[in-house]
C-alpha cells in the first residue's frame, strides 16, 4: 500500500486502487484492530479524494492555437461544440 504518497497528490486511479485494497483488507477482517481503524481512516480519506475527483468532472474544451509554422502558441476556448 503506497502509504507514503499523500492522498491529495494521487491520481484518481491510484486512489481508487488503494481504496479497493483497503476495503478488501478490512472486509477480510484479519487485520489488527488498531490497523483496521487506521485503514478505515485511510479508506475514508481515499474515498473522499475519489469523490472529489469525480465531482470535479467539469467539461472544459479548448483549442490549441498555432503559429504559422504549426507550433502551439496557446489555447483558446472552443465554443459551440
Amino acid at each position: 500500500m503506497s502509504d507514503e504518497k499523500p492522498i491529495e497528490k494521487m491520481s484518481f486511479e491510484e486512489a481508487i486502487r488503494e481504496f479497493e485494497q483497503v476495503v478488501t483488507a478490512l472486509d477480510r477482517g484479519d487485520v489488527a484492530l488498531e490497523e483496521s481503524i487506521n485503514l478505515y481512516k485511510r479508506g475514508a480519506a481515499l474515498k473522499a479524494h475519489c469523490e472529489t475527483k469525480l465531482k470535479q468532472a467539469e467539461e472544459q474544451v479548448e483549442q490549441i492555437t498555432l503559429d504559422a509554422g504549426g507550433q502551439p502558441t496557446g489555447t483558446t476556448p472552443a465554443e459551440g461544440l
Binding site: 481508487i16 481504496f19 479497493e20 483497503v22 476495503v23 483488507a25 478490512l26 472486509d27 477482517g29 487485520v31 484492530l33 483496521s36 481503524i37 485503514l39 478505515y40 479508506g43 475514508a44 474515498k47 475519489c50 469523490e51 469525480l54
Partner: peptide, 21 residues
C-alpha cells in the same frame, strides 16, 4: 458508475470496520 461503486465500497468499508469492532 464510479460514484455508485464508490458508495458501495464505502458501505463495505463501514461494514468492515463495524464487523472488526
Amino acid at each position: 458508475d464510479l460514484l455508485n461503486w464508490l458508495r458501495t465500497q464505502e458501505g463495505y468499508l463501514s461494514r468492515g470496520v463495524t464487523q472488526a469492532l
